[in-house]
Design a protein around this nucleic acid. Sequence first.
DNA 1: TCAAAAGTGTTAGGCATACACCCATGT
DNA 2: ACATGGGTGTATGCCTAACACTTTTGA
Lengths: 221, 221
Amino acid sequence: MLGLNDHRLQVLLGKREAPPYQGRWALPGGVLRIDLDETLDDGARRVMRERLALELPFMRQLVSVGGKYRDQDRSPWALSVVYRALVWQADVKPLAGKRLSDLAWRDVEDAATDVKLAFDHRELVALAVEKTRQEVAEMELPVGFLPKAFTLGELQSICERILGRALDKSSFRRKLSDRGLVQPIEGEMRGGANRPAQLFELCHRVPPAGQSRADTGTKPV
Amino acid sequence: MLGLNDHRLQVLLGKREAPPYQGRWALPGGVLRIDLDETLDDGARRVMRERLALELPFMRQLVSVGGKYRDQDRSPWALSVVYRALVWQADVKPLAGKRLSDLAWRDVEDAATDVKLAFDHRELVALAVEKTRQEVAEMELPVGFLPKAFTLGELQSICERILGRALDKSSFRRKLSDRGLVQPIEGEMRGGANRPAQLFELCHRVPPAGQSRADTGTKPV
DNA sequence: TCAAAAGTGTTAGGCATACACCCATGT
DNA sequence: ACATGGGTGTATGCCTAACACTTTTGA
């Protein structure tokens, strides 16, 4: 669970109440319920719903890890399917139920280098951050993470916070329009203390029949 | 299991003897043995070893799929962790044991569009091919798939067969040397019916401390 | 009038494609 | 001699980072 606030990208960690790794920070998770979950994705959504009372549209399976010694105090073999979610921290009121004594947002840079996390969760955090940044760098916009309407400045700021670095305004906007990812709405707004900004929304249509950008790996010879 | 022959990239399919999907072609698989497999990767290796009597160095987990109705004739819930392997067809003598009545190599283009494959295996084939091609296009060389020594012509031919399209010789070689992926060996060879070719091997060292190519997503501002 | 953010245009350089060209060997 | 594949150089064009510039509002 990666969360964005006004400043930076963070990851939600919980402190484990019981062994293994008692007292260590870990990624929150849950167990699959074959009576409730029709698919893996369903299970991931259910766990998030139970924990956060929130419907998460932008979840993505990252990897599965499993092994004999993964959780040997409780089971002879354990398999975890790792999902990533993206949320606004402001939208979320996570509650430390279950087996966690505490919950906290932690900077991703921190967590990805903290060798004291439980299990292999440090690597998992690093993987999630890397994948997410790669997606944003390639302009796969974090759908479901965006409001219905946003200004280009806001969008850029979101991407910058996820990437952890500044972007060039002009290049950013050209890329957006070249690939036809967003379109203006007719109600402009956002006039805080300066020039008002045009509002945009996502284009969910297929790239409009033309050519522009296929990118299915089919490069010319 | 993707296999390369002198001409093209193919995928190994088996014909199912029993329901579900009796008589349909499917990707060969096996069940995890928590008494034998210490990790998921171990399990994947063991299944391949049992089926092909071959140690496969270049396996990669692609995705996990699971659901209530995935294999409902045999189990109320089924989870599959999908791996991809790359092999030389010539090195492999697969035998149709277990629950398969037949085995065959099939062109990947074919299989990835054949709606009659069992389960969701058409999508899985398409995914495996896409990922593999993307790796090759980005010059993540198929390690373990290459002989210890090879000529640049051979390497290019391998990549071309995987990608299913021709590559430019000059660009291909420049990319290799720019990124320091291969290095020449001092014993040259391969003089069939024309000029002999220098033999190369992979560089497994980290990019030699300099800068050249970091590519951890850290682009300049 | 000034600050601050929106919005647009231009330039320079890196990278990859495409192509042209020589080299060495067996037939 | 010539066909075949090895090996190398070069130019064109695209994409993008970098930056300069104008516009519009509130204070």
